[in-house]
């Protein structure tokens, strides 16, 4: 019963810390094994496909975030302000992506849009469209939760009435009043989406095999050292996204955002 904590608490913590950290250390160590040291990193930084994959996934993530925000913010705002009766329905709809795992979603997408009459994926950029559409839908649950929690902490009605009394129209209210006041909520939803989309493998491996996660997957088969290096980079990217997310949501009602496994 010392003030440095109970021994059992330390024991559990240390076991957990070992389990969590050893794979990361092993990966990092592995990435340095190739001779000369740093060769694994040199390889990927000279690999066009690495930058192409990362760049593509990043671009897809950004487009996903923008579309998701453009849909979710007005919807959540509208539901709160005008259609409170629709709330349970919308919440149910945002729960659906939890019920449909990505592997099922991509299965359905390929069956719907990979063959006539809706063969979108064979059009130029068609599979990009389907991929982004899927990601947007997958981002709805946490985007909606983040934005709705943000709206709950604002007094939306008063803000809107204040803006209207000064003669603002709807688009202006959304753009100038609601969006800025939701900055924290939007940032947290956006960075979670970024972390997830950039690392997403299941859907991407079918619709965009050239994107980041499938690239890493193939690298794991024929260039293990460089795959270790990319894994470390990918882990650091996740850390960066989550770190910004935590910084952004500091001080606001801290709610845990969970995306789930892949």
């Amino acid at each position: 019963m010392s003030r440095f904590g109970a021994w059992w608490a330390w024991a559990i913590f240390i076991i957990a810390a070992l389990y969590m950290l050893v794979p990361l250390v092993a990966t990092f160590q592995f990435s340095l094994q190739q001779n000369p040291t740093g060769e694994a990193y040199r390889y990927i930084f000279n690999d066009v496909k690495f930058f192409a994959g990362l760049g593509y996934s990043f671009l897809v993530a950004v487009i996903t975030i923008v579309i998701s925000l453009l849909i979710i913010v007005p919807t959540a705002y509208w539901v709160r302000l005008k259609l409170p009766r629709l709330r349970p329905f919308i919440e149910f709809m945002t729960l659906l992506p939890f019920v449909v795992p990505p592997i099922i979603l991509v299965f359905g997408l390929i069956r719907s849009y990979g063959r006539p009459p809706l063969a979108i994926t064979s059009l130029p950029h068609g599979s990009d469209v389907v991929l982004i559409g899927a990601y947007v839908v997958l981002s709805f649950p946490y985007m909606y939760r983040a934005v709705d929690a943000g709206l709950a902490s604002l007094d939306v009605r008063s803000l809107t009435e204040a803006a209207q009394s000064m003669g603002s129209g709807w688009p202006r209210i959304l753009l100038r009043v609601i969006f800025p006041n939701l900055r924290v909520a939007i940032l947290s939803g956006a960075f979670l989406t970024l972390a997830i989309v950039v690392g997403e493998f299941t859907i991407a491996s079918y619709l965009a095999p050239w994107s980041f996660a499938p690239y890493l997957s193939q690298l794991g088969v024929f260039k293990a050292w460089s795959a270790a290096a990319v894994s470390i980079i990918s882990f650091m990217l996740t850390w960066a996204a989550m770190g910004i997310l935590i910084l952004a949501s500091r001080g606001s009602a801290g709610r845990v955002q969970i995306a789930g496994a892949r």
């Binding site: 092993a26 990966t27 979670l192 997403e200 493998f201 794991g220 894994s231 989550m242 997310l245 892949r262």
Partner: peptide
């Protein structure tokens, strides 16, 4: 928060290296 989002390909690779 990070680890629960760190799944998929890099996680599988990390365990192979471990």
């Amino acid at each position: 928060g990070v680890a629960s989002n760190f799944a998929g390909v890099p996680l599988a690779l990390a365990f192979v290296f471990t």
